[in-house]
Amino acid sequence: MSNSRDDVTEQNRRDARTIWDYHQIGHDVSPCDVAIGLGSHDLGVAAYAAELYHAGLFPLLVFSGATSPTTAKRFPRGEAVHYREHAIELGVPDSAILVEPQASNTGQNIALSRALLAEHGHAPRSVLLISKPYMQRRAFATCRKVWPEIEVVCASEPLKLDDYVQSIGDEKLVIDMLVGDLQRVIEYPKQGFAIEQDVPAEVRAAYDRLLAAGFDSRILRQ
């Protein structure tokens, strides 16, 4: 665990839990025509996708994601490529995986995956979006904007916040990421990237306190 834990107060942790819970929208994970694993720094997306594939929840899986400044060192061949390799190691057949290696944001993840599916003759009516745990709500809001006619189910590894912090190894960074994603949930509808989401007063208050406390390394800057 990073020493940054010493800089995080109990109030910060309570606020982080409030935002963590808000980001996870609690869909029942049900069978879908296809799944899309959204690229990020989190290899747990690929692992959970493999688990759900083996559970029979979908027959076809798209991994989407290029590389970025935050993932280039971890996934030098691109997020989707590394996700695919990990899923194959976990027993998913290569024939069940499509790779979309160009997307650099969530809207592109969905739009380019949709185009790739169409190229391969697939017109799904339902999609299971698999993301890192704190990205479920933003993934849902983005998909409803970019692909409004499809039925969307969101899923991520069923982790508690403390377990996710342990897996990343830096508590402050995780809280920064929670704050950054919430800012995007709030701001992206104004920019036409996502549908509007209700943000309860207690979530907004937690967000404001964490911003004031300096958890801002992942926010969008003007």
Rank of each mutant, 00 (worst) to 15 (best):
L159F: 02
Q197E: 15
I110K: 08
R184G: 04
S2L: 06
L57T: 07
A111F: 05
P93G: 10
Q222S: 10
R74K: 14
V99M: 09
N109P: 08
H27W: 04
I25C: 06
T142H: 00
S4E: 14
A46L: 02
K190W: 09
G56C: 06
D163S: 11
E171F: 12
E187Q: 15
A206P: 00
T9F: 04
V179R: 03
I25Q: 02
R138P: 07
E202G: 09
D176I: 08
A47E: 13
M135H: 12
D163K: 13
Q136H: 09
I175G: 01
A206T: 08
G121F: 07
R74N: 09
A118K: 12
N109Y: 04
Q197R: 14
S156G: 09
D162R: 11
D176E: 14
I97D: 03
Q24W: 06
R17V: 12
R144Q: 14
K145V: 05
H82V: 08
L211K: 13
G214Y: 09
V185L: 03
A205G: 12
V99C: 01
S4F: 11
V8S: 01
E51R: 13
D28I: 11
S4M: 11
G56W: 10
R221Y: 13
I110C: 01
R114Y: 12
S217M: 13
E89K: 06
N12E: 12
L211M: 12
T67G: 00
I36P: 06
G107R: 13
Q24D: 03
L220E: 13
Y188A: 00
V185A: 07
A205Q: 14
L161R: 03
L159N: 04
G78P: 00
H54E: 14
A205I: 02
A103Q: 08
E51F: 10
A49W: 06
S2M: 05
L128H: 02
H122C: 11
Q102L: 15
I219T: 13
A80P: 08
D181G: 04
Q136F: 00
Q11L: 13
Y48W: 15
V165I: 15
A194S: 15
Q191G: 10
A72L: 15
L116D: 03
